[in-house]
Write a protein that binds this DNA or RNA. Structure first.
Lengths: 337, 337
DNA sequence: CAAATATATGGTACGCGTACCATTAAGTGG
DNA sequence: CCACTTAATGGTACGCGTACCATATATTTG
């Protein structure tokens, strides 16, 4: 396999000149550049990025650590990240934590060994020690989707409080009073924020919050099933459901269907995070849509900026909150009807 | 940042001994190992995988090059790959080609520079030159989902012919005669195979094939929409649709719904590739389900085996065809009714 | 026109592990 | 007890680019 020295010899220049051509750095006469490129092509030279990274201490690599690439919300975030990173010559490692702390730390250790330039992290807990550890290792970090406590770090996430507030407000406006909230894991800011938005809407309407109607659990179909099952046993039954994410909603809807309940005739449903439009035929759900693709883009841009201009490192720690869009569809209706 | 030499000094051994401890290679006395591990921990030593890979010419890295991580079929494949690779200490780069040849070759070039040990490739065309190029560079290659021509390379894919045959056979058994096939890109083996299965079922039933009912196009929602639109203008209208993948079906169904047609009362629909169960509420589609997760697993296992035992390199080139499962649901019904 | 700056190229010495070979001590079989 | 393998450890020299410094000519500036 040809090396930079082989190319240099063939082009009649020094190795460093070839390096300059390959990296578009320093001064090279156009004629010299041509000769070098010709020699490289003739030898089928493939730059060795390992050697390059090893010496220059830049890997041009990011990592995206997320709960589960199987969730359409995260695939869309991933595309946003990849498109931005790719445009700047960065490659991206994707890592699924399954919300499992052991997996997360195993991945992060591997990423540090690989000397990735930066990590986009949706942390498994909102405890800041993991992030702290990364920062100590001099790796760029941007936290996505979630907020961690007691630590200054760039964060990009959707407006969970606002989205939840608007969804629940919509239900209240339709006359619903018994509204169950099926949120995510209790130790995540997203879950807490979505309940906070729920509470805010109820409070504002002068309604009291029934704690037994508010549950935390996994962001999974099973969790949605289980909790819906429990809710259906209640009397009086809630007239509306606020699902903390798309998978919880999917589980809940399945159970309702099996129980012979219709949406929205029997129970109204609102949900955080869209299921990509074409997948769901009936019923189309009333949702709070997070700009997932933009979230990935913004986070990646921020991270790359930090990597490319470490000078501005400490200037400002941002906490970008992207607006969510409420789309009223067919899963909600007035309780009066 | 601590190096292997720092650790060696602190543990009172030679650098190479530290290397042996870190890699579990060669002989090390348990007592020595302990001392080294202690020293490494005290110094917060993080092995430099760049240096390791650079010298040992092994990066412990794979790449998964696929059309679009947004499609649930591919996310599931990706999970299969990641789980197998991760268990063996490999990290995976994901690359979306969007079925675009330029993107594909850009990614492959980047992967070669990075000296990945192997590539799992769903090639954009079934032309073998790309694969040939990779093999010349001494990179492990396993082609997934598709078959390339004129080249000996390991391949793992679903049984497109068999799946299509069974789906269309099912329609024929229900009395359908006017069956439209909406296949994928004409230059992909999957698309061709699915049409081949379609043709086989028709032939076997003694029916003639109306070429105007068979179309090729992108594996996208838009393509499904457009082609369905055209079909609805036909008289007589086809009584059944065979969609080449889930996205094409989604597009087609949307158009049908907009035109006020019901499934399966007005038109029966069968489709290749499932939409993950929880997403689709009504109607549940009759599908040929490929074992996507297993496909990823099997392909990754095969690739890792080739990487770990290059000796057996040329022994046998496999073409694994995984069985697909036909699930009859509510989108098909007898034409007699 | 001297001084300063931009342009163009090269030499040397790394970086941080590991391949390769060498060495010594301990165990083993005949 | 000797030849031979196994266990345990170390020394040296890389790998393949690039950081850093040096050099030399061309161009600009005051």
């Amino acid at each position: 396999m040809a090396t930079i020295r082989d190319v240099a010899k063939r082009a009649g220049v020094a190795p460093i000149t070839v390096s300059r051509v390959m990296n578009n750095s320093g001064y090279v006469k156009p004629e010299t550049r041509r000769r070098v490129e010709e020699a490289a092509a003739e030898l089928h030279y493939v730059p060795n990025m390992l050697a390059h990274s090893f010496r220059s201490k830049r890997t041009n690599t990011l990592a995206l650590v997320l709960p589960d690439i199987t969730n359409p919300f995260w695939t869309t975030v991933a595309r946003g990240v990849e498109d931005v990173a790719g445009a700047q010559g960065f490659s991206v490692f994707f890592c699924n934590t399954d919300e499992n702390e052991t997996k997360q730390s195993r991945y992060l250790a591997a990423l540090l060994r690989r000397r990735v330039d930066g990590v986009l992290l949706a942390p498994v807990t909102n405890d800041g020690t993991t992030v702290q550890m990364l920062l100590r290792q001099n790796v760029g970090v941007v936290v996505i989707d979630r907020k961690v406590k007691n630590i200054e770090v760039d964060t990009v996430r959707g407006d969970s409080i606002g989205g939840a507030y608007q969804l629940v407000r919509h239900l209240i406006d339709l006359g619903h009073r018994q509204i169950a909230a099926l949120s995510g894991p209790a130790n995540l800011s997203v879950s807490q924020d979505r309940v906070a938005g729920y509470a805010q809407a109820l409070n504002e309407a002068g309604l009291t919050i029934d704690p037994s109607l508010v549950t935390f659990g996994d962001f999974t179909i099973e969790s949605g099933r289980d909790r819906m099952q429990a809710l259906l046993a209640r009397r009086p039954r809630p007239t509306a459901i606020f699902a903390g994410n798309n998978f919880i909603a999917a589980g809940a809807l399945t159970v309702m269907r099996e129980a012979g309940l219709r949406t929205p005739e029997d129970i109204s449903v609102v949900v955080f995070d869209d299921l990509p439009d074409p997948y769901v035929f009936e019923p189309k759900l009333t949702v709070a849509v997070q700009p997932a693709y933009e979230l990935g883009q913004v986070a990646a841009q921020r991270l790359l900026q930090k990597i490319n201009h470490p000078a501005t490192k400490m200037n400002d720690v941002c906490d970008v909150i992207l607006p969510v869009q409420i789309i009223i569809r067919q899963s909600t209706r007035s309780i009066m009807t």
